[in-house]
Write a protein that binds this DNA or RNA. Structure first.
Lengths: 139, 139
DNA sequence: GTGTTTGCAAAGTGTTTGCAATTTA
DNA sequence: TAAATTGCAAACACTTTGCAAACAC
């Protein structure tokens, strides 16, 4: 009887292919960090240092490029709550956020927890891209 | 019969007094730009260049300090929609915003135009500071 | 091979800070 | 006069850019 290390299947390659992005070493590695596991809110710097500590050699510039490419193809969603820092959310489905003002942390709020019954029409000639609800809490 | 230039009464001095801020030349001038007239969403750079073109000599650092002091005492509300730029809203009453993603412009949505019927409780030990609804539109 | 992607370092943006000089009460 | 405020320039944090080298197909 042998011990087996079970490594969860990575969807990273499939996701890149589906998005039409070349699965380069860096993109694949970053995609694994981002998408294998729980949903997360991560900044470029965080992802970069996480990559380094996993022995993935990648430059910060590439991390930025990659995050934006992923956002462009809908793999990520960018969230801005804090002046001067962007977070990227691996959960691209409809939902909202708690924002902890002191710590700068974000936490998901499922869409159904918010009763948003009426939203104004977009001004003429424009389309609504998204309706964001941010519940700011102290702490 | 003489012509009279009617200058609207400025509430700036009263507002500073009420807030316990020393009415220095710079604060007073900035307060007049901010509060005499329609409500507005303005960035530090915008306010600074507006001050300069009104022959108000004030440094950018002081504009930043002043905007933050005004925010701290509740005269302004800071809005973050765009990574790397803060806007300050002279309308501190309950309301929401349209955000025009391409132009970076903000536009008020009166509170009653949004049907927000249910908001999750703050996680234990925290208090909700504010609930922001941002309707993002293309353009 | 050919076009794409990467890394680096430099430049750019918006914001904050330290401190001496000035101003306010 | 004592304390608060200001201006300046430098420092900062985060992000983007330009281009040669490396890589994927």
């Amino acid at each position: 009887m042998s011990m087996v290390t079970v490594r969860p299947y990575s969807q990273a390659l499939d996701r890149l292919r589906a998005a039409g992005l070349r699965p380069t070493r860096q993109r694949l590695a970053l995609a694994r960090l981002l998408f294998d596991g729980e949903d997360r809110h991560i900044s470029a710097e965080q992802l970069h240092s996480e990559a380094l500590s996993n022995n993935i050699r990648v430059s910060l510039a590439t991390v930025y490029n990659t995050l934006h490419q992923f956002t462009d193809v809908g793999l990520l969603r960018e969230i801005v709550v804090d002046a001067g820092r962007s977070y990227f959310d691996t959960n691209t489905s409809d939902h909202h956020h708690f924002f902890y003002e002191k710590s700068g942390r974000l936490c998901d709020i499922p869409a159904e927890m918010v009763g948003l019954t009426r939203v104004p029409d977009a001004p003429q000639g424009f389309n609504i891209t998204r309706v964001e609800v941010i519940v700011r809490v102290d702490g």
